[in-house]
Nucleic acid binder design. Structure first.
Lengths: 351, 351
DNA sequence: GCCGGACAGTAAATCGATGCACGAGTCTTT
DNA sequence: AAAGACTCGTGCATCGATTTACTGTCCGGC
């Protein structure tokens, strides 16, 4: 009795006076193969003995698991934490489990995780990878893994079977930059970690396009990019924002508005602004991206771009399920969500 | 070939010219049962074929899984997100997976999760439950589940086999309240959600004891408790703090210092302070608990009590592993970590 | 020369569920 | 009346790994 209670299908069968096959048939949506009376006897036996199927055995036999993998940079980042929560909620509703994997933005770790998940029988994964290339998942995709790439738009050269779900980063960054321009700002800067990540690059593109679309010259607008090439993790996004901001504001002709690659970074930027003795909004406008929970709690509340995480998580899960239960992965497709500008108190007209 | 590559132990055996048993013996740390030459042949075959053990089959046979469960109120809360990340890190180092479960503070959901985990073959769980009673895990404990109750000190009447890991909430709250008293504050208030959760109660006790230990009368110190009995989730902790604070500061003789049950709540309290046109620190001191990442980023940076999450997560995992691999659960025990006061900018002497 | 034991390795049962292939009985059809 | 078709099932191989019980073989000791 290593396994605790462990009522098996055989015991149910004996109790109901049928064969294990019949119990299995009932359990697997083939109740038509028996008389209603038999069916009831089996159901009673199941009830009585408190039978619960052994998922491991089932998985070994069928090759299917009721679990999906979630690979995120780090769930310590509230953005990913919130996403994880929503994904898990969607999964729970269909009796699926979620295996949590923090890649810490290390490619090698990410690869290792995916393989491990595959070995564990997982056939569907939400991959939140910032890597510019997803070639390393190709073998798994070919073997039959369903992968939803989240927060990463489809790239030329991506594996075919990939499903992409992402907010439109270009539009989002455009929106928020436009907002700053509308307020009258002309000297802007963009604060970002390494631009090797696809979504970061898109956001930067949106930022630039808003400036040029407004008929401004990039040089005139004094649009700067303050980045760092070392591979910053999430926990350091804020520190990065803080350090860069102090630098930027110390320069000769400092920007009056700062666009951060995401909210965590923006919080750091705000801290940096204060470090130099200035006030956010009054002296320097700051905007973020994501609309994490804290964006509206910090002082001043952050103007940012909202990602509808719950909807996106539900969508991601449904894709996975379709891929897993359909047996074959879905044909690759791309879902681009239109983000929403959320104006709060961290932006104001320049002095 | 449903299963992709799927090299089995049999194929390895054939390639090496031995029986499957021998391969298994090698794989399970019994290399002494064969000649070094044989051993090498098997190892070469494994290498050559790229064999990787099927964890599902292994689990079915042995009853053991290389996975643990993590039940938290909500990983959207940065505190739990950070804990999850550290736990996952500790697990990864030993090749364990982490199954993520958000209870959303719903007892029924928590119970359902635990059963599901058990059915899935999980034999070790970190349970972050705020429920005053853990009676519902008793059957699982008896069946052989190893449970580490995290952020919850041992309670009289708890199941025997429980391992508790928690920060000393009483001491922590005492420390931070003491700090306020040292600064000269005499009119304090405590802001908390429902006190039914064990740790919240302890923190409140620590708060009260600091006041009486200082030789003050509770009435003199004007120590108030502002709580709400509706079951607030994490995402609302901040809103609760905000709403209560506005109320408290609107009263006749408002407190000069506010102690929040945790950092999320404290962030809300800070927002509430500003809502009433006051300044945090200058007009009203605010303290939190946990020292989440954002505590030092928000403005002003939050004075709080640090929980050494990484160390605690590592400890929790080691207990689970011992419980799982030892076959039998460990005898119940309790680990109480001494927290550390972190003084930042949200506290100052009263006006 | 025979027994006991260490050594090197294997056969086969087992974990629990699944589902194909088959079968016995009953009803239709021509 | 024989052949087909349908109903209500069941037998058994199978998923991949583990592990117990066992078989030869060789060696040393008395």
């Amino acid at each position: 009795m290593r396994n605790g209670s462990s009522v098996t299908i055989y015991q149910v069968a004996r109790a109901a006076g049928v064969s294990p096959s019949t119990v299995s048939n009932l359990l697997n949506g083939r109740p038509g193969r028996m008389l209603p009376a038999t069916r009831q006897r089996v159901e009673e036996a199941i009830e009585q003995l408190g039978y619960r199927p052994n998922r491991t055995a089932r998985q070994l036999r069928t090759g299917r698991t009721q679990a999906i993998g979630l690979v995120v940079p780090s769930v310590a980042n509230p953005f990913w934490g919130t996403f994880a929560r929503h994904l898990e909620g969607a999964a729970l509703a269909e009796d699926y489990h979620v295996l949590l994997c923090n890649s810490e933005r290390e490619p090698e770790r990410e690869r290792r995780y995916l393989e491990q998940l595959w070995d564990d029988g997982i056939r569907g994964v939400v991959l939140c990878s910032s890597l510019p290339s997803l070639d390393h998942v190709k073998p798994l995709l070919e073997a039959g893994l369903t992968v939803v790439a989240f927060d990463r738009t489809a790239q030329p050269g991506d594996p075919e079977a990939l499903v992409n779900i992402s907010v439109d980063n270009v539009v989002g960054a455009h929106l928020v930059t436009q907002h700053l321009l509308d307020l009258g700002h002309r000297r802007l800067a963009y604060v970002s970690g390494s631009l090797r990540a696809v979504n970061r690059q898109e956001r930067y593109r949106g930022y630039l396009s808003a400036i040029t679309d407004a008929g401004l010259d990039l040089a005139d607008a004094n649009a700067e990019l303050s980045t760092s090439d070392t591979s910053y993790g999430d926990r350091d996004a804020a520190e990065l924002g803080r350090a860069r901001t102090v630098e930027l504001l110390g320069s000769a002709n400092p920007p009056t508005a700062l666009v951060a690659m995401n909210d965590m970074c923006a919080l750091g930027v705000c801290a940096g602004v204060r470090d130099t003795g200035r006030q956010v909004a009054e002296d320097v406008s700051v905007v973020g991206f994501d609309d994490i929970l804290l964006a509206e709690l910090c002082a001043p509340a952050l103007t940012t771009v909202r990602q509808p995480l719950e909807r996106m998580a539900a969508e991601a899960f449904q894709h996975l399920r379709a891929g897993i239960e359909g047996g074959a992965p879905l044909p690759g497709r791309s879902l681009l969500i239109r983000p929403e500008l959320v104006v709060r108190a961290s932006t104001a007209p320049p002095r």
